[in-house]
Amino acid sequence: MSAIDFAAAAPARIAMPAPAVRARPYASPYLAGVGIGLVLLAAYVTVGHGLGASGGFTSVAVAGVAAVAPEQAAASPVLGGYLGGGGRGPLADWLVIELIGVALGGYLSARLAGRARRTVERGPRVTDRARLMYGFGGGVVMGLGAKLARGCTSGQALTGGALLSVGSWIFIATAFAAAFAAAPLFRREWT
């Protein structure tokens, strides 16, 4: 029984995804949040900086470009700094390893909760293919936004937010505001 059927049984306005029958329910978001906060704190006190994600993606992107067009990669003011020996060296590696951990942790948790399955999470009114295209497009825009802002929800909102950085809170505010404002455009995708 798929998640879609559950949602159809609920009032139409509530497009709330429910896990499949045999899966465990999600944990309390507050408890999970506190847990994540403690993880963030652990990072601060061990390595002196917080979490990140988009930086790790940049490293991967740079590695890809460097493999096919090394001169381009080195020449780019954006990508060049991520190449080995550049100014960002150690932190870039750290983020990649962290992201590998995120995937691993996500997999373990999903597996143990019976939530791991090959599927596409989408609203009932779009096809898998459309959802994947929205996903890709959304990713492109997030990639642009994250580079401009020097971070994403992990690096700016969480890490910078907890450290009371003004720019990070500006990021939180504009991200949430823009997401709420743009939501009607994507109603079809989700509801």
Partner: peptide, 8 residues
């Protein structure tokens, strides 16, 4: 010259 620049 070691320039340390960090991002996220």
């Amino acid at each position: 010259r070691r320039v340390r620049r960090r991002g996220c």
